[in-house]
Design a binder for these strands. Structure first.
Lengths: 138, 138
DNA sequence: CAATGAATGCACTTCCATTGCATTGATTTT
DNA sequence: AAAATCAATGCAATGGAAGTGCATTCATTG
């Protein structure tokens, strides 16, 4: 069992108090978060620092960005079957129209998408919108 | 064969010179366009007017928005198999990483996406990124 | 301990989406 | 046809989010 510190170091990320806090925040969130979410969680920290912290995580491959169509970038830790560094990995996400939260459905894989002749598929972004399990009352 | 004027009226859209021009512009474009694209095409017109013109078209169901992950909203006329008013219709779009253009692949339908128990799917947004037919040299 | 380089914080910029309000324009009512 | 009404337009301004420059703080290393 690695500590978070060891994990970050293994990913070539220098450990700081800020980064530990942001990592823990992301880890305990089961849904994707916006930069504003993080900002609200750490009111004392500067927005830019948080922005760059998440960006560093992204560059080092432990966080991925989600574009769920709301126009606001969401972030989530890469884990549990997330292979977002692999180009062909399908980033399936679910956006709830009721609570507004977006969750990663990493365990749900999607068949290969066919594109017309002449088109070369490098990456696929798939967002399903509807009502999530919490809001549907199940 | 309806005229554009008749078509707009049938959709409960009052006909104006501006709206006719914007409609024609969208109609002759085979790719999706941004508000800036429209703005550049009609330098004399005000950005707000164009914005509201497109929004009106969208509200009346003859234009749909595309979020291709670039962060900039794209628009396209609904036609040729586009059933975006139907919730379950798959909005398949292709974004070219080379030329930056986004096209609608309305003729390419995708199998139903399965979501976990408790989740209710209402709408699906699918964006494939890669190289388009024009840029791939075919 | 000094030096170096990264991390942080503050200020600022840019870009796009959106709204308020006054004015213009068109349509309907008298 | 003139007046009244309502939508469309244009201008100005706002707001939100992403991103950058630079000075300062912090931590690591020689």
């Amino acid at each position: 069992m690695k500590t978070i510190e060891q994990f970050l170091e293994s990913k070539d990320i220098r450990v700081t108090a800020m980064r530990l806090l942001v990592y823990k925040f992301l880890a305990e969130k089961e849904v994707t978060v916006t930069l504003s979410d993080i900002e609200n969680a750490f009111a004392k920290a500067d927005r830019t620092t948080l922005y760059r912290t998440v960006k560093t995580f992204e560059d080092k491959g432990i966080v991925h960005q989600i574009d769920d169509g709301t126009g606001i970038t969401k972030y989530a830790l890469c884990e549990k079957g997330c292979n977002c560094e692999i180009e062909t990995d399908l980033h399936l996400h679910f956006h709830c129209n009721n609570c507004g939260e977006t969750v990663c459905l990493t365990e749900h894989k999607i068949p290969q998408i066919k594109v017309p002749d002449g088109f070369v598929s490098e990456n696929v972004n798939l967002v399903v919108k509807g009502i999530c399990d919490k809001c549907s009352g199940q």
